[in-house]
Amino acid sequence: MSLAATLMLAAAALSGVELDVLREQVRGAECAFARSMAERNLAAFGRFVAEDTVFFAPGMRRGRAEVLAGWARWFEGPQAPFSWAPQQVELLADGSLAYSTGLVRLPDGKAVSRFSSVWRRNAQGRWQVVFDHGGPLDEAERAKAAEPDARPCTAP
């Protein structure tokens, strides 16, 4: 690799401190995203969904409008049918994309699945979901799922 290419890569990578700040931004965005479900606010939920998003469940949904149409049923009624909180958030070295994952829980606290989301910072600096997927817990996760999340989302 040439010296110029090496310097460009080094300049593109953020410091650990900057990545920690961005990681907390994404964690906060994920918690606010989850809070929109708890507060039964589909419009707020939609602000965290990128226009060109892809959600893999239920069924393949492409684009914000399709995702909101598919998720609207879960915003009906006074109580959210499930909740979630990030357990892990990771970023690319340049801070352009982030990954979050955690447990999805029923109202009684029972963990039923794991979500995984890829976040992208938009031109206004807001983090939005570009890919979202949920899946069943593996055997080890089911055994650990009775434990509370180490860092649950809290109200602002």
Rank of each mutant, 00 (worst) to 15 (best):
A93N: 09
S15Q: 07
T53K: 00
G70M: 03
E76A: 13
R126N: 14
E147N: 09
S15K: 10
L19M: 03
A44Q: 02
S116D: 15
A43P: 02
M60H: 12
Q88H: 11
T154S: 11
E90V: 13
A146M: 07
G28W: 02
E24H: 00
V89I: 05
R27S: 08
P148I: 01
L106N: 12
A72N: 02
R121A: 11
L97E: 06
W127H: 04
V21R: 08
A11Q: 03
G125M: 07
H133V: 10
E39H: 13
N41M: 09
R61E: 07
L14Q: 14
L106Q: 13
R151F: 04
D108H: 08
A145Y: 03
S116T: 07
R73S: 06
L7W: 07
R114H: 04
A10M: 08
G16Q: 12
R40P: 04
E24F: 00
A143Q: 10
V112G: 07
L14M: 12
A123N: 00
R61S: 11
A85S: 15
L103F: 12
R27K: 11
Q88L: 09
A5Q: 12
A32F: 03
A65L: 02
R64K: 13
A85N: 13
A29D: 02
D20W: 06
T154K: 06
V49W: 01
R126D: 15
V26T: 12
E24T: 00
A43L: 03
V26R: 01
R73H: 00
R142Q: 15
S83W: 13
L92Q: 06
S2W: 10
Q79H: 15
L3D: 14
R64E: 02
L103R: 12
L137Y: 02
R47N: 11
S36W: 05
W84K: 00
V49K: 00
V17Y: 09
L68H: 04
K144N: 06
N122S: 06
A69L: 06
T53C: 10
E24D: 11
S83T: 15
V17R: 08
D138Y: 00
A69N: 05
L14D: 04
A98K: 13
V112D: 06
E90P: 01
L42H: 03
D52F: 02
A143P: 01
A72R: 05
W119I: 03
F131Y: 13
Q128H: 04
R40K: 11
P136G: 14
S36G: 03
L103I: 09
V118F: 12
M60R: 15
V130I: 15
G63P: 10
S15E: 03
A34S: 09
P86L: 00
H133R: 15
V129R: 04
P148S: 00
L14C: 01
V104L: 12
C31Y: 05
A32D: 10
T154W: 01
D20Y: 04
F48L: 05
E147G: 02
A145L: 05
L68F: 05
